[in-house]
Design a protein around this nucleic acid. Structure first.
Lengths: 390, 390
DNA sequence: TCATTTACTTTTGATGCGGAACAATCAAGG
DNA sequence: CCTTGATTGTTCCGCATCAAAAGTAAATGA
């Protein structure tokens, strides 16, 4: 097995794991607070926290200090527990066509170092060599990594094998094994969108939610549905979702995606293509946003149409999947700033008048966020033994 | 409390409840089979089943008899356990504008008697009187009902109060209390769609599934999303969902619903309205189906457009909510028989080419199915103590 | 100083589960 | 006919886990 169990930490009992995850995800918490959250008695918490503290995973945090401890309360002061975030470090990689982005994170998934390198070859062995080299450089000033997570666009099986990746030209590449043998660290490989979704579910916008959706816009469209704390896997994962999400049958026809599909309306290449086809100018996405903001009518029209498509999608997701929150992420969500009103208006048009307003959050992510997502997967799988679901 | 706990049966421990539900929902099962399904040891099953058998809820079923016991197997023969379906009876009502439909069911939710009565008044007290009378008549040849379930179109709160029902003109009517005081039986009131969804989740198309969707077409549109065995409640419940599900912005404008919405494209009144507006003839839904099947172009066109709208909806639900199965139910699903190919084609158009085919099931329901749904709710709440979720 | 409040620990008892040993009941094969 | 093996179900014991209760600790406020 490439991805063996908790490396270094003792295996956790279900109760211990629940406590560890609660503290890890929801910051420093006192024992009594954890007891309330997990519906356990105070006595159980003494029992469960003892081995966690002894093993070094948790620590009795220094009292919040002099700053200001919120309200002064009566009674014995509580003793917050916190994870020893720096006790282990994790490495996350995001592989794109021509670059590899790497980060080092703490147990809390805070990024403490970044390191990127151009990717000049797609040969599996050479890519693994590069990842091993980058691991070496990244860990120079940190303890040996407890785990390595790798995010790749494409289909990934068993969290270790890249079954199919078009932009790398890979089929059934056992990437986890290749990297693990070079670095000696356990490795988890996952589809990039899936990793980002898990990261947001644990540490980001979806923290503590039961139903949660992540929609990413960038070079393509990504969709992740989280139910009951776990991501729902589907066969379309990593196969370029959104090609057949026909939002507007009379919408534009672009090289990728069907006419009027989410891909042809929303992705960065499609928006650039539409502007280029109409004006002859080859503008970057940022330039298009800037021109639209400045009042240039053609870019504004393209972005307005995109925002309306996005609003339709968001409303449909809210109507049918009923998430408590929808996160818009990726490099291509800048259009929300420029065409926000059109987005809002379209959402309202497609929602029941008495329905709850859609809880929508926007987060422009860069490639280091994707790499961080991969690191979070390593935390989940390797430290806490959170296996795959169904 | 109107809806007090398990009337007659001892309160069940979580383990006992799990066993009871497993046997109730999945037919006769041997102890070892239950142990496998619930991941319990054989010893635990002896312990858990003993009180259930003693209390009369379960029984050691007579061996399947002479017929043919499938394959001959080695070893001690298994002893299937089954619920004593006839030990209690349940009553379910569905209230429409001018009729009340009533059924008597077994613990397994099999309908053993039906009785309908016209509804000539909408006064809460008189409706409750009628329900009490019908209960009296329905239980003449059956033991006293263990519980009564009532399904109403509209918003229902706390499974007892009709907060708002347009067609009855009701606001905050404590219907459960009114009926319970007249009959002496515990009463559960729920939105009709919600009740049907629960019934299908436990005993119907959604049995054993983790993610499941029910879409009903009739006088209106109904939508129910089941995740992890529980229905997701939403504020739109009972407020006429589908009015803002804009499927085709250039679709027909009907008296109800926005232009091109699911309501104006799919509901029976809208389809009849479209045919009437075009031909001047006031046809029933069944007549429209028959004419379209016979080749009459105008009804065929209306139904074709409806089927394409339905296909779009189904595909969107499959794309975004990712259920393992979608059930189409209600009085208005007959169009699937007439315009099935258009439905299939539209679904495929909106699905990823490599996605799993949509698991779609169609079930024409009559009003007794709705009443049965209400009875199932009584079974859930009163017998097994399955409370509300979130 | 002393009651009060809140947080945590220790002890105790109950519960529920898995596992081992055993009984029951069948088929297959000499 | 008897043995062997397979499968189901029962009984019993030990273990893990939890809640409840009682005790300890550390603060506030009068």
């Amino acid at each position: 097995m490439t991805t063996r169990g908790a490396a270094g930490w003792l295996p956790l009992s279900p109760g211990e794991r629940a406590v560890a995850i609660e503290v890890l995800v929801h910051g420093p918490l006192s024992r009594s607070e954890i007891a309330r959250r997990l519906n356990l008695s105070a006595g159980s918490l003494t029992r469960l926290t003892k081995p966690l503290i002894e093993s070094g995973l948790l620590i009795e945090a220094a009292e919040s200090g002099e700053g200001e401890s919120a309200e002064v309360r009566q009674g014995r002061p509580s003793q917050p527990l916190d994870v020893v975030a720096d006790s282990r470090s994790f490495i996350g990689f995001k592989i794109t066509e021509d670059m590899v982005y790497g980060v080092v994170t703490t147990l809390r998934s805070d990024i403490v170092a970044r390191h990127d390198r151009p990717l000049t070859t797609h040969t599996p062995a050479e890519v693994a060599d590069l990842l091993a080299e980058m691991t070496e450089e990244l860990t120079r000033s940190f303890p040996a990594p407890a785990g390595i997570g790798i995010g790749v666009g494409g289909r990934v099986e068993k969290r270790s094998i890249v079954a199919e990746s078009a932009f790398l030209g890979w089929t059934d590449v056992p990437l986890a094994e290749l990297v693990a043998s070079r670095t000696g660290s356990p490795v988890v490989v996952e589809n990039d969108v899936a990793a980002l979704v898990e990261a947001e579910t644990w540490f980001g916008a979806g923290r503590g939610l039961d139903r949660f959706v992540v929609l990413t816009i960038g070079a393509g469209i990504g969709y992740g549905l989280v139910l009951g704390g776990g991501r729902v896997a589907s066969v379309e994962d990593g196969r370029g979702v959104g090609r057949r999400w026909i939002v507007n049958p009379y919408g534009p026809l672009t090289p990728e995606g069907e006419r009027g599909s989410a891909i042809s309306l929303l992705t960065i290449p499609s928006i650039r293509y539409q502007v280029r086809a109409a004006t002859g100018e080859d503008l970057t996405y940022e330039e298009i946003l800037a021109r639209a903001a400045a009042g240039d009518p053609l870019p504004a029209r393209v972005l307005d149409e995109a925002a309306r498509a996005l609003g339709t999608l968001v409303a449909q997701i809210a109507n049918f999947a009923m998430p408590q929150k929808i996160l818009l992420a990726g490099e291509g969500v800048g259009l929300v700033d420029v065409a926000g009103p059109a987005l809002e208006e379209t959402i309202l048009t497609h929602r029941h008048p008495q329905a709850d307003p859609v809880n929508l959050q926007t987060k422009v992510s860069d490639f280091h966020d994707w790499a961080r997502g991969a690191a979070v997967l390593a935390i989940q799988v390797l430290v806490l033994g959170t296996g795959e679901r169904r």
